[in-house]
């Protein structure tokens, strides 16, 4: 309860930059995936969206970036606001122009394009001169020096970490103010995960980019995020400042795998679920 209260005060202190209000999403007209999700990202902050497989993290991000429609998903209730204006009817193209961009789960680099070409495609929506785009490219290389070394390699032949960097760098080329980052740690070695999260934090601090981060790797995500939301079965079951979430007993037990008094049996899970429903 106290965690919820803190989050409320935190978002009251800095007005919501991106806000989801009571979002409900249905796939294929029958499968209810999000059951009234509300969350806020204050400007210039990193907010983590946590939860297990199938909890609805990716769907939440795709609701914001409007990539849902391409997958037969439909928002049936609720609204999405960015900078105080509703954005739920905008196409991905318009959203990117507004500054909201998603880095998809699983990296999705253009395999047959070189790393540099991948980055350049990110500037598609920009109308600036070649020199401006060159500048952005140099900036991306500053954040990801590794990409500069691999600039002429076909993205399909680079390592998983490099592909993740390419995907983030590609999004940066659009000069976003809000990045929806989906599962950047997926399938990467812990060291690379740290490297990528360091860069993400850097981006947030130096460029002031706000970030909504969907992660299964709760431990790492909470270390880098300011706030966190925990999703389960399409509902937000917990929210609060990252530090508090990380020290919350339930989170420790079920998402961080740290039990207070030894390992618990699965019988206790039921008990936990009951408690959590009450919390929500």
């Amino acid at each position: 309860m106290s965690a919820t209260a803190t989050a409320a005060t935190a978002s009251a202190a800095s007005p919501a930059y991106l806000a989801l209000n009571n979002i409900e999403v249905i796939y294929d007209h029958v499968i209810l995936v999000l059951k009234g999700v509300s969350l806020q990202v204050p400007k210039g902050h990193i907010v983590a969206l946590l939860g297990a497989n199938g909890a609805g993290k990716t769907t939440t991000l795709k609701t914001i970036s409007n990539l849902l429609r391409a997958e037969r998903g439909e928002v049936t209730k609720g609204s999405v606001e960015f900078e105080g204006r509703r954005i739920d009817q905008l196409t991905p193209n318009e959203l990117v122009r507004r500054g909201v961009i998603q880095v998809m789960e699983g990296r999705h680099c253009f395999a047959h394009l070189t790393v540099e070409e991948n980055l350049l495609t990110g500037a598609y929506t920009r109308t600036g001169s070649r020199a401006e785009i060159r500048d952005s490219l140099e900036k991306v290389y500053e954040f990801f020096p590794r990409l500069k070394q691999r600039r002429t390699s076909q993205a399909g032949y680079t390592s998983g970490g490099e592909q993740q960097m390419t995907a983030i760098g590609r999004a940066l080329m659009a000069r976003p103010s809000m990045i929806l980052l989906d599962e950047p740690s997926m399938g990467l070695a812990p060291q690379i995960v740290e490297e990528i999260f360091e860069i993400v934090r850097n981006l947030n601090q130096r460029e002031g980019v706000s970030i909504l981060l969907a992660e299964q790797n709760t431990m790492v995500a909470l270390r880098y995020a300011d706030f966190g939301y925990i999703l389960e079965n399409g509902r937000v079951v917990m929210e609060g400042e990252a530090r508090e979430l990380a020290s919350n007993e339930d989170v420790k037990e079920f998402y961080l795998g740290l039990a207070k008094e030894g390992r618990k049996s699965f019988r206790d899970v039921k008990h936990y679920r009951r408690r959590k429903r009450w919390l929500a």
Binding site: P92, M104, T125
Partner: peptide, 19 residues
């Protein structure tokens, strides 16, 4: 370039704002 990007991965192309 956008054309080749679309050829490689529709979804990703859409996500970075290529119509």
């Amino acid at each position: 370039r956008a054309l080749r990007a679309v050829a490689d991965d529709h979804q990703a192309a859409l996500s970075i704002g290529i119509p």
